[in-house]
Nucleic acid binder design. Structure first.
Lengths: 319, 319
DNA sequence: TACGCCTTTTGGATCGATCAAACCATTAGA
DNA sequence: TCTAATGGTTTGATCGATCCAAAAGGCGTA
């Protein structure tokens, strides 16, 4: 294994001092162009890379972003694609993604505490925000940099930057698509009331029907499984529904057993595989925006307070 | 934000020297029990945690494991569950998982090089091994610690530790299950020859039929999509097949449009959602074994050369 | 009492990068 | 001519944990 190349080696090779090398890398504008070139050539020649540990020692910044890797409950989630985008965007800004696991808010806070003591990540990216989220207040109290993918539900205060996908806009597009297809009795299969995401998605459906002068009375709550999706779909169809907007692909999958005019949400692999029309979230962009908000804040640049992205209707069969 | 607690603070609080605190944490056996207790109490009281950066500076070990986050091609993959297990097991051994992205072997090697210079991960976990894998030889040449999830295909040398799931054993179980169900003409839908994983899975099917005195003649290659799965299934059924073993859930999904007696591979969310019988990989255990092999090697303990796990047949409907 | 042996503790040096401040020319201003 | 300012570069000190060599303390034995 090649011996480690330090900043002193580069300095020697370029006939300058350590500090000058450091300046070339961190504040190029204070170094004379000719020297800069010479140092860069030495860096190249020796294959020098800054030691993250040594830099962190001195500056207190680790260039690490921490995020929780979620347990795939029903597996039809979207997190892995988000995580991929996050890793890619972070790398583009010179950051790396560090993973941790947690089972609930409290254990996640414990993970924050431990990570901050050991690896000192510069920031956190939180997912699955929910009502009464203990994590955001814990981080905010300590003035630690973080972004959430998911808006802060419940609290009126927008105390921290967030990125989210506009669920209501999505279901509005879905509902309009079904209306365009000639449907007039369009139902909605949702989650239990109180889930921020679920309520948001439902609102897009109801407001679109209302805008069209139609009753938004065909709605049912489910636990999110295909089984309950199927049962719910059966009931709504009996009550006159000819088409259904669903809160997730998982629910839609069940509904599809009852009627073909179904729109799901999330564009999971399942939807692609079975040809289900659904709403795709711009996950790579969401991840990029998360990194952007966080790194802006970390470098003291003015930070947008939040970003709301619009999902795309992916049409796979005629309703 | 609370000021950082250093080892010197702990030493002062417990009325001992820095070195004694360090000994309590790293070589407890050399410290008198009473002193040990006093130091641990101080650690607890002050909420002290070792600074990973400072330790790494001195010892050269980062307690970081790096792994690539894969792009979900057709999305029906298994990697996210493996990654979750990896993060959890690593944490249990005092390691953290650091992510990077890459598009091919060469860019992954570039990522190795960069990471080794900057964050100095103690080891790598590689997935998706394949014939002529440039990554393993690069790492092996430099004597860097790594494990692969996936056996080294092609090369006879077992030069590095690996963990894999026995695909042949899986398809053998699947084929036997179909035989038990009364089927005698069982087909196989695979990938193109040359894919190590695909050939392995096919071999379990053919050897089981051979052992039962049956011809293993109903086999076709596909590109792995549901579309080709469906086309292939149609052809095999025309040629007399009454049941099909498939190389993946994705292929099985297509085959399912043709005949109900289908077994998939991977137990993806799709399989669970549509009630497909399939082979589940013990991903959490595979991840745990990867961490075990790697940390054994890192601490100089004797290391098993490899681990081969057996998949489980998940029966969801009668063939 | 002196000596050696063993356990436990101590102070200094070190890892590599960056900060703060000093240094050296050279030029502009009084 | 002298001082002040400027641009460009260099020199020590530092971050926190660990390694190293060596000192201090306790105990038993000659």
């Amino acid at each position: 294994m090649a011996a480690k190349v330090t900043i002193a080696d580069v300095a020697r090779h370029a006939n300058v001092s350590r500090q000058t090398v450091s300046n070339v890398l961190n504040s190029p504008e204070v170094v004379k162009e000719e020297t800069r070139q010479r140092v860069l050539a030495a860096v190249e020649a020796l294959g020098y890379r800054v030691s993250a540990a040594a830099r962190q020692m001195r500056t207190g910044r680790s260039r690490l972003l921490a995020t929780r890797i979620e347990t795939t409950q029903d597996g039809m989630n979207v997190f892995d694609r988000f995580l991929h985008g996050l890793t890619e965007s972070a790398a583009g800004s010179g950051y790396r993604v560090l993973l941790y696991t947690a089972t609930d808010d409290q254990s996640e806070i414990a993970a924050f505490d431990q990570l901050l003591g050991e690896f000192e990540p510069d920031g956190f990216v939180l997912t699955s925000t929910h009502h009464g989220d203990a994590r955001t207040s814990w981080l905010a109290e300590r003035d630690l940099p973080f972004v959430t993918f998911g808006r802060p539900w419940g609290t009126s205060e927008a105390g921290h930057p967030w990125v989210d996908v506009d669920g209501a806009a999505g279901t509005e597009a879905a509902t309009r698509h079904l209306l365009d297809g000639g449907h007039r009795r369009i139902g909605f299969l949702g989650w239990e009331t109180g889930s921020g995401v679920g309520d948001d998605r439902k609102s897009g459906w109801s407001r679109t029907l209302a805008a069209g002068g139609l009753d938004a009375d065909l709605a049912l709550e489910t636990d999110g499984t295909p089984a309950q999706g199927q049962a719910g779909a059966r009931e709504l169809v009996e009550r006159g529904a000819t088409a259904l907007v669903c809160v997730s692909d998982s629910v839609a999958l069940g509904a599809l057993q009852v009627t073909p005019a179904v729109v799901g949400f999330d564009d999971t692999p399942v939807a692609a595989a079975i040809g289900l029309t659904t709403l795709g979230q711009p996950l790579a962009e969401a991840a990029a925006r998360c990194v952007e908000l966080l790194t802006d804040r970390l470098s003291g640049r003015p930070t947008a307070s939040h970003v709301l992205l619009t999902p795309t209707l992916v049409i796979r069969k005629d309703p």
